[in-house]
Simulated scan of single mutants.
Amino acid sequence: MFGFGNAFAEYPPGRTFQATYKCYSVTMLGDREDVERGGKIIMPPSALDTLTRLNIQYPMLFKLTNKKTNRETHCGVLEFVADEGRIFIPYWMMRNLCVDEGDFIQIDNVSLSVATYAKFQPQSVDFLDITNPKAVLENALRNFACLTQGDVIAIKYNDKEYELFVLESKPGKAVSIIECDMSVDFAPPVGYKEPERVPRKEQSLDGAEMETDPQEDELFRPFGGQGNRLDGKKKGTETNGSTSAQVSPPRRGIPNYNFKRGTISFIRSVKPVQNGNSEDGKEDPFEAFSGQGQALKKKNRK
């Protein structure tokens, strides 16, 4: 293990960086909102000297491990200006690691795959008040370097802090989000409930209230609107046959599968005939112009 006391030693090629530091929150440095809002830490200068002597991949990514609870997370580095033997990390990262001020944290240099997909679950229903959550998340993740499944990251928007639980990440449990094209999805927030459909009460023509099924509201109702009068009075335009209790789903016609382009078909509904007679046997045959005329002036009868 490489501690912070042998930073100027020569290391053989192929070795990775590993050190143990005391962990403190960023608030110990004063007003450093740029660190608190992101996923990067501040390390001592000796760590930079050690990393430059090793054959590591850039950008520099690290795994933070709490040996007492075996909690892990991943991060990037923002600056190398911390006191020797100390690191400063965001407070939300300390909560994920379950550490207090001054606890020891092991840091390992790692190489992570580039992220292609991530799914988040907001920890509050207030997150639904954001008009464009994907744009807000994209802007906030610019200050992050890694994502780890099981972490609860914190972002700020309009002076309000929102916590997001990392449900899923691809192609691995820990991914790098530096210069990547990542698809983002959201799960329902914690405590969110789907709105229930309540039957709507309508008033019939006789003044009595009746409940309607929500599924009936989706049926097509021809001329089901409400008219407006010039004198300002309100009057319903529904008739007895258009009330919700009597509305039935519209009948759909059967298409003519034998239709040929350029032809016209006249379809007539003919009642079935049995033995050359109609079903009733009492209906009179149709006679054209069989009505009775009326004269404007009656003839005088002698």
Rank of each mutant, 00 (worst) to 15 (best):
Q292R: 08
G281P: 00
D280K: 04
D284K: 15
S265T: 14
V270C: 10
D284M: 13
F286D: 09
Q274P: 01
V273T: 11
S290D: 14
G293C: 09
F266Y: 14
R268Q: 13
E279N: 11
S265M: 14
S290T: 03
K282S: 10
N275A: 15
S265K: 14
E283V: 06
G276W: 02
S269P: 00
Q294F: 02
P272F: 06
E287R: 10
S269C: 15
E279W: 07
Q292A: 13
I264F: 10
Q274M: 11
S269V: 03
S278D: 05
R268E: 09
K271T: 11
P272Q: 03
E287L: 08
K271M: 10
I264T: 14
G281L: 05
R268I: 07
G291F: 01
K271I: 06
G293I: 07
I264Y: 07
I264V: 15
I267S: 07
N277F: 07
R268L: 05
E287D: 08
G293W: 05
F286H: 15
F266K: 02
Q292K: 15
F289L: 06
S278Q: 03
F286E: 01
V273D: 06
F289N: 11
A288W: 01
K282H: 09
I267K: 08
E287H: 04
G293R: 03
Q294K: 14
I264H: 10
E283P: 01
N275V: 10
D284Q: 13
D280P: 00
K271G: 05
Q274N: 09
S290Y: 04
S290Q: 11
V270D: 02
S269H: 12
V273W: 03
G276E: 03
I267W: 02
Q292N: 15
Q274K: 07
